[in-house]
Design a binder for these strands. Sequence first.
DNA 1: TAAAATCAAGCTGTATACAGGCTATGCCAT
DNA 2: ATGGCATAGCCTGTATACAGCTTGATTTTA
Lengths: 232, 232
Amino acid sequence: MVKIAETAIAVSEDETGAERFDRIYCELRDRICLLTYPPGTVLSEGALAKEFGISRTPIRRVFHRLEFMGLVTIKNGVGTMVTDIDLKTFKQIYDLRKRLAEMMGELSPVEITPDHIATIDALVNRTRNLADKTGSFDELALIANDLQQLLSNLTGNAPLCEITELMYYRVARIWYTFLPQFGWDKAHAGQLNELEEIRAAMVDNDIRSVGHYRSIDLQRMLTLLGRLLAEP
Amino acid sequence: MVKIAETAIAVSEDETGAERFDRIYCELRDRICLLTYPPGTVLSEGALAKEFGISRTPIRRVFHRLEFMGLVTIKNGVGTMVTDIDLKTFKQIYDLRKRLAEMMGELSPVEITPDHIATIDALVNRTRNLADKTGSFDELALIANDLQQLLSNLTGNAPLCEITELMYYRVARIWYTFLPQFGWDKAHAGQLNELEEIRAAMVDNDIRSVGHYRSIDLQRMLTLLGRLLAEP
DNA sequence: TAAAATCAAGCTGTATACAGGCTATGCCAT
DNA sequence: ATGGCATAGCCTGTATACAGCTTGATTTTA
């Protein structure tokens, strides 16, 4: 979760080692994706160890995972730096994600349950409630994260889930960077539209269409981005 | 194997930390993929640390990477065990690899250079030389590894390379397990055929066909496997 | 005899001290 | 004044001792 305060509160007494690892990993990942740590930020093992009240060892493990996810670069003697993604790679990943989204409906799709519908309904409502809260890009990003997680669960092909998630988090903050440039109304309307389209497809138990809409939305992002880069 | 002796010799004096990490990582990965460590094998940090003449710390880092690659499972208090892949997951990954192979020719394909041709020629020759060396499944597997690496370099889409490689190594040993059941002649002829088809496509600078042939070969493997499982 | 509790041995997880690498600052020589 | 160099301070990398967990054998008890 994403809010730091909440996370701190949520720490249970009898937390196991793996749980703590996941908690800290998600925490740092979200800080990077929400630009709390913008690209170029130097993360110190020692400082974070002190913040979380543990030693450097588990923090190092989290760092190595973040490095594997492509979110940081670890350099001996220098530090651990939040990566910056160039536009070329960004486009490549979006191309890839478009294809992966379409696969979602084709490789081992799962039956859609009322739980799934309830989840997407909640996301639609959260987004609707943001209609007049101009500039709530953070909340928009959190909804996008949850949508990604929901869509991940719509295929029984576990490796495809993994890969989709990997690519999502690798570019999430770049998307977040450009969000304000689209303007609040456009960004909000776009996301609401995608959510409603996906919801409709889910109600019809038509996962192929879900993937199709997702793919269209990724293409839309690429088009918008290209226009933004051409204008100035 | 990756013979231990050779590896030991190959260690240069001024090896950097990252280089040593890669060396040990590749070594253990290959031992797992070539079934030197069959599924279920328990790997001990202490034992391997002693073998490589270092402490447990860097070995642990390698273990965590292997876990991320899906090749081992680390359990606190128990040990680090080589994973076993069920057939369902195996099929899912092959389905995924088929799609990824086709993307190779579509997403940012690179220009094929004489170097690439030389590499594929060498692989074809190595395979031809195995014609009458019945049972050299190890060498066949090593050639397959090198082919995978070559194909990875035929797309400029780096994330696609990563993912393709990830999925390859995750099922490599399962493929290797079934190889003897196909019989030497069939296994050898199949691989030689794939290599020659891919070579021809590369000579024509037709990466799309390269991916297509690769995809066909993956499908052939799935079909053969299905037949094997149906017979007994 | 059988079931339950105990203990021992092995493993990974953590903390910590120390070694090694990088960088910037400041001094010294030119 | 400036270029080169030494050095201090930070960082990550490594080694190691210890804590915690799991499992299976052993002993105890009903």
